[in-house]
Design a protein around this nucleic acid. Sequence first.
DNA 1: CTTGAGCGA
Length: 286
Amino acid sequence: MVQEAPNKVRWGELEEDDAEDLDFLLPPPRVIGPDENGIKKVIEYKFNDDGNKVKITTVTRVRKLAKARLSKRAVERRSWPKFGDAVHEDVGSRLTMVSTEEIVLERPRAPGSKPEESAAAGDPLSQVGKKGAVLMVCRTCGKKGDHWTSKCPYKDLAPQTEAFVDKPPTLEPTASKSSAYVPPSMRAGATERTGTEMRRRNEENSVRVTNLSEDTREPDLLELFRTFGPVSRVYVAIDQRTGLSRGFGFVNFVNKEDAERAIGKLNGYGYDNLILRVEWATPRTN
DNA sequence: CTTGAGCGA
């Protein structure tokens, strides 16, 4: 007869899978080292298949190579105190953490914000749409109520820096305080020229270039034509589907004489193993 | 063979 103590473990009844549950009965594993020579000892205890307690000592040698790979600075950093969000962390020895702080980026006119807040009170353009008076504002010359950007008489003109040097705007006494933009045609000394004349002149200075090689781009055309005088625009027709050049383009000159000379010199000119055709362009049909 | 794309009421 065997008297059973209530909590006594009966080895024979143990399932194999439950064996690990008894690990708490074993002494805790001990780690010794690594010492000067890189020798590290791990002593742990296990139950063997017969249910007997055994002591297992594992001796390993810490690879010197890994030690050598650490830079002096890296070793130094290990003794630093933690900082940032990692201060409250005790995971491993990590010094830093990815910050979870939220940083809000300000966008001008973010969706949902009130546009009125950003509009200056004294800005005349802020009144656009309120009174319904000024609706057309040209983005090229800034003229209000006159024309859209697409119809601007100055849109094909090259930036004329010399115009400001040669003819500084003579402001009328009443307007002397304001620094309002004065279009070149309104300035003192400007030659008499109506808007329609300017428009027509610039359309007519448009030169058509055909028989371009496939890989000719706008910068190439500009390089070729700018030797004759200031160029206000270059355009190479691109096939939207293939992205390749369609073999023709346009060059607009500021001065008609330059365009004439370019036509005379470059028509029949060999360019990229093709013979260029350069002639006046007929106005675009809209 | 061959004459342009795309913005706002």
